[in-house]
Design a protein around this nucleic acid. Structure first.
Lengths: 106, 106
DNA sequence: CTCGTGAATAGTCAAATGGTTATCTATCTG
DNA sequence: CAGATAGATAACCATTTGACTATTCACGAG
């Protein structure tokens, strides 16, 4: 529905670093340094990725002392999933046609 | 699984023009000019978008005379959908928690 | 063969991305 | 108060993106 929202969500998902961050956050909230640790990348680069994720609404940030732990937010994932579900009819039909074709060739 | 594949798929989906093209192609194959018609945009711009979609494997091109009709390809949509499904557990738990919270507040 | 049309390609350009280093801000701790 | 540490922000740079115009390529029709 809201096109700009989907733009931001899919753009955020189109990067392996950011997907890895989301995967990590699915296990529970984490600080910036914890999120940065697996990557050969400086902290400001991670902060930039986090800003992209935040602008897409995929994460929210808390504020506990000098830490700002991030946590995963579900809504954009749901919207993106629903968008793709709109094509389910299409791809099931495609595979059904392929099946039919293979049957006739047999 | 294949990260570069998901990169290309999500990047391709992160643009409203390209999503509109996919929506059009879900109704059946179409030529470049037919795809370009709804947009205030020149034909080469559309060709570039089509190249992005093709690199992502979201469309294939036929070759009928001087037309190269595009058609929608299902696989990347399936993969993207499966990727998001991996978070379903997470978001259902999130919403369940929210429900529970609302219950206790009531 | 020549012309018209569908589409691709080349070249240009401005803006956005994704990284860097250096610095600043805020909080915890001795 | 004086560090040390978590993280943000600024400034910079190279690459990519998304549009444009102009041109070229490929095919079909007269």
């Amino acid at each position: 529905m809201d096109s700009a929202r989907l733009d931001a969500t899919f753009a955020a998902l189109a990067d392996p670093t950011r997907r890895a961050i989301l995967a990590r956050l699915a296990l529970g909230e984490a600080s910036v340094n914890e999120l940065a640790e697996p990557f050969r990348m400086r902290q400001p680069a991670i902060s930039k990725h986090l800003k992209v994720l935040e602008r897409a609404g995929l994460i929210t940030q808390g504020h506990a002392g000098q830490r700002r732990p991030r946590r995963l937010a579900p809504e954009p994932l749901v919207h993106a999933s629903q968008y793709l579900e709109g094509y389910r009819q299409f791809w099931e039909a495609s595979f059904a046609n392929l099946d039919a074709l293979l049957q006739t060739l047999k």
